[in-house]
Simulated assay, not measured.
Amino acid sequence: MTDSEKFAAFKQQQVTANQQAYGDEARQRYGQAAVTASQRRFTNLSAEAYQDMQATEQALIDQLRQVSQTQDLASPEAHRVYQLHRQWLCFTWNNYTPRNTADSPNSTAPTPGSKRTTPKRWATL
């Protein structure tokens, strides 16, 4: 088996594991077409793009740890989290449109200078 074939098999294993853990929820939230497109994008990632995705994920986790200490969701560090999260999502999503922006009536986005409480689930990062 070549390295390319091993990498393709690895990505398929990741898709299968993700499907088992989150497939039903993802289809309910985003629909079959979006899930299938996301899986296709993931399985088509090059080794370099996959490494970039993993590096972005690690930077996101590191930045989340910092923000969870300050709990200031309007800080420059928190905005970096938002940017990294978007970047990470865009590796596998066909398009990205924020659902909750500061202009939205149902916004959960912090306003400049506000201090928001970090969800307890983040405290374990």
Rank of each mutant, 00 (worst) to 15 (best):
T117M: 10
R99H: 03
W93T: 10
T118C: 11
L125Q: 12
S46G: 04
N94W: 01
S114H: 04
A74H: 08
T97A: 10
T108P: 00
A47M: 12
M1L: 08
E5S: 05
Y82H: 03
A26R: 12
I61K: 14
N106I: 10
N18G: 14
Q13Y: 07
A123E: 14
T117R: 12
E57A: 13
L45F: 00
L89F: 10
K6W: 00
Q69D: 06
Q12M: 06
M53L: 09
F7I: 08
T43R: 09
F42P: 00
A34Q: 11
A8D: 07
L89V: 00
P76C: 07
T16F: 05
A21E: 14
A78Y: 12
T56H: 02
S107G: 01
P112F: 05
Q19R: 13
K6A: 13
Q14T: 12
M1E: 11
E5G: 05
W122D: 09
Y82V: 10
R121L: 03
A102R: 15
S38E: 06
A33M: 03
R99I: 09
P105D: 04
A74M: 01
T56V: 14
L84A: 09
R65C: 05
A37F: 02
Q58V: 07
R27S: 08
Q71F: 07
Y30G: 00
